[in-house]
Design a binder for these strands. Structure first.
Length: 708
RNA sequence: GGGCGAUUAGCUCAGUGGUAGAGCAGCUCGUUUACACCGAGAAGGUCGGGGGUUCGAAUCCCUCAUCGCCCACCA
């Protein structure tokens, strides 16, 4: 073939190859097949942004496994979809509204919902195209969106089941509240931030208390000391008069083990409505919960002249007043950690409000076990295995101290709770349908935490498509980023085991965060991000995938520099030219058949067999980097540098010419199969050149070691 | 305050008991019809420090140091 170009034109060829794959139907599992089923659920990407290298990395891992399994002959499903990504999307949309000078609180609920819905659907299409550009061989005919009615129905059914089983309850308890975003957040959605505040030592009657939040003093209900603290022994049980910024207040002095004698003065003011620890103490001592800060971060009307002030202003004003009263004894700089909203980084305000909770530690009536214990049991028994093992330790230690999960969020974008309230305070929970007397009831306006539905993704998608649940559940592997181990992995196991009786996946392979060539985290502000789409056009999607997988051990952070991507592009070109050489050297009718004659033949077939064994074993063990490195070395060093050079003589020699041609084709044939899961495009392109008339490489058979 | 991980060639990282590896960068030479997005050759590491186990340790154990991550209600 004289028209065999010197290089693979990835930018032009890759999209065309992708179209061929789609047209072939090869991404869909053959349901008639009797083979063992293998499956991965594509973590539903948030439909609110563009593809980044993190997506590309996840695609590389999953697509490599999927393509490998498909070639091994398993009944293989990669189930794609999109999440509504509740708060994440709402947050993005809120910023968009802000730019337009609008505000979500002034838009009618149904209208706002529809706007976000359209926004989300539009982004979904974009994201999906980008996944396709990376070569994702997902079964798009099964694409599901989290808010499709049957998936929502599944979520409602689970909620009702958990409710009837005694695991879901509504309670007034302290929650993390974001003033900016006006919603509750779970423990996982707040992060620690170090900052230096002031610690105020205030005269509280006969004692001194230390506090960073003097503006909450209007909500104080007691002074707490340690029961064995000699300094305050005589005061416990008495009531003392405290000069506050608005008036003098009588507070009881109570004793509680929680108080640390070493800290501050050993005396603690108790503000139960605005501090989770104080709340616990107040519960133990039957104290009131006066609310003095509202949901917007302003002081309530119980705060005298400070009513209506914002927290920061109130603090300054209260301190000024207290100073004039002569009750500020000392002010110290106080470095400590505070909780902030993981999205907007603003200070979290603890609030005591009614929320719906899912108990993770209480045994259910039906199963006599808690959700936590169900998940822990699946890991302990080996039903679900973590790669790498150290994440298993993290999983267990988190589970040990896990707390109940607040399910309700005060946003519009999401699945609204199937909960109605009657005037008499009674509650109706359904599987989503309106109660008969709905007109007399008020529906809860909250929506579910997005993770509540995400964690049902395995059975909500599979369970609503023919026999998929039976065939593909439990799925084979899940490969999320390690930051999702608690958000998603652990909770998905709980709900999966609870509803299906089996853990949703056999293997959890956690991966790291993509870093730049210097090992730095990528971020827009640092300007070190790599746009996968632009890079795919320049170097090919194969090159990106290879760069992300090469040299990355499971659970560690991959690095992807332009140099590394270019290097992997060069590897693709090397493979391309191996094929070019072989194609130009052989006769048109040369068969793919290995007959070793020369020493070089014997050497290369031995290396080939050993490579097949290594790559196969490594892929079975989820050691993608080992498989890839072994292939890279074999292809470039053993085949290109050594064997091909030897064959230049062998092809000139009439006694070895024919067998050498067959050997070359055989080696190439095998290389293309082995490399296909990692670099699907270039291998498929060469396959159609070298093996014309054959079915697509996509659905070809994985090589096996033969005794030849 | 707990728990975990990392420390290997200039840079980024593989390698978990048996004679030190890759990619990128760099050096010397080479435009021979597979490939200059290349080839040949050379160079480069007492595998963080110290101690121990072993016939043998980058790999197992102890300890120290530095960096990083996760979890945690001390006002």
């Amino acid at each position: 073939m004289q028209d065999f170009p010197k290089r693979f034109d990835s930018a032009t060829a890759e999209p065309l190859i992708y179209d061929k794959w789609v047209a072939s139907g090869g991404f869909s599992p053959s349901m008639e097949s009797q083979a063992e089923a293998r499956s991965i659920l594509m973590p539903p990407p948030n439909a609110n942004g563009a593809l980044h290298l993190g997506h590309a990395y996840e695609i590389a891992i999953q697509d490599t496994l999927i393509r490998y399994w498909r070639m091994r002959g398993y009944k293989t499903l990669w189930q794609p979809g999109a999440d509504h990504a509740g708060f994440e999307t709402q947050y993005v949309f809120d910023r968009k509204l802000e730019k337009e000078g609008r505000n979500r609180f002034s838009i009618p609920r149904a209208e706002l919902y529809q706007e976000i819905y359209d926004f989300s659907i539009a982004n979904q299409a974009v994201i999906r195209q980008q996944f396709e550009r990376m070569g994702a061989s997902a079964d798009w005919s099964r694409f599901r969106f989290m808010l499709e009615p049957d998936l929502v129905k599944t979520v409602y059914k689970t909620f009702k089941q958990l409710y009837d089983d005694g695991l879901i309850y509504r309670a007034k308890r302290p929650v993390h509240w974001c003033i900016k975003d006006q919603t509750t957040l779970s423990d996982l959605e707040v992060t620690d931030q170090e900052q230096t505040d002031k610690l105020y030592y205030l005269t509280y009657g006969p004692v001194t208390v230390a506090t960073v939040r003097p503006e909450t003093q209007f909500g104080d209900v007691a002074i707490a000391v340690h029961p064995e603290d000699e300094r305050y022994k005589d005061l416990v049980g008495t009531t003392v008069d405290v000069k506050m910024a608005h008036q003098t207040v009588s507070l009881p002095v109570i004793a509680d083990d929680y108080v640390n004698r070493e800290f501050g003065t050993g005396a603690l003011k108790i503000t139960p409505a605005h501090d989770p620890n104080d709340f616990e103490i107040a519960q133990r001592h039957n104290l009131d919960l006066p609310i003095v800060i509202d949901q917007y971060g302003k002081l309530t009307d119980q705060c005298g002249q400070f009513s209506g002030m914002k927290i920061a202003d109130a603090r300054a004003a209260v301190v000024a007043e207290l100073e004039s009263l002569g009750v500020v004894e000392k002010i110290e700089a106080y470095p400590h950690t505070v909780k902030v909203c993981y999205k907007c980084n603003r200070l979290i305000e603890p609030r005591i409000i009614d929320q719906w909770w899912l108990s993770l530690t209480k045994p259910s009536q039906s199963k006599q076990k808690s959700l936590r214990d169900l998940a822990v049991g699946a890991v302990a028994s080996g039903e679900t295995r973590f790669i790498t093992e150290r994440y298993e330790n993290q999983f267990h230690s988190w589970m040990e101290s896990v707390r109940d999960w607040p399910l309700s969020r005060q946003i519009v974008w999401g699945i609204q709770l199937p909960v109605w309230y009657a005037k008499d305070g009674s509650v109706v929970v359904t599987e989503g349908e309106e109660p008969a007397n709905a007109s007399e009831l008020t529906r809860d306006s909250d929506v579910f935490d997005t993770w509540f539905s995400s964690c049902q993704w395995p059975f909500s998608t599979l369970g609503n498509h023919n026999d998929d649940l039976e065939t593909f559940y439990p799925t084979t592997a899940m490969t999320p980023g390690y930051e999702l181990i608690f958000f998603w992995v652990a909770r998905m196991m709980m709900l999966g085991i609870y509803t299906q009786g089996k853990s949703p996946y056999k293997v959890v392979m956690l991966h790291g965060i993509v870093r730049d060539g210097k090992g730095q985290k990528m971020s827009k502000s640092k300007g070190n991000t790599v746009d996968p789409l632009a890079t795919a056009d320049q170097y090919g999607a194969d090159a990106i995938r290879l760069a992300l997988l090469y040299g990355t051990a499971p659970g560690t952070d991959p690095t992807a520099s332009e140099e590394k991507i270019r290097g992997m592009r060069n590897f693709g070109t090397k493979v391309w030219n191996i094929a070019r050489y072989i194609t130009m050297s052989k006769s048109a009718d040369a068969k793919s058949e290995f007959i070793p004659v020369t020493d070089a033949d014997h050497t290369v077939i031995k290396q080939l067999h050993s490579t097949i064994a290594t790559v196969t074993q490594a892929l079975d063990d989820y050691q993608l980097h080992i498989a890839l490195e072994s292939l890279y070395q074999f292809i470039w060093r053993d085949v290109a540098d050594v064997y091909l050079e030897k064959t230049k003589d062998q092809l000139q020699n009439e006694t070895t010419k024919l067998t050498t041609e067959g050997n070359l084709v055989y080696v190439l044939d095998t290389i293309l199969r082995l490399l296909h899961p990692f670099a699907p495009f270039v291998t498929e392109a060469l396959w159609s050149e070298v093996m014309p008339g054959q079915p697509l490489l996509l659905v070809s058979q994985w090589p096996e070691v033969t005794n030849g």
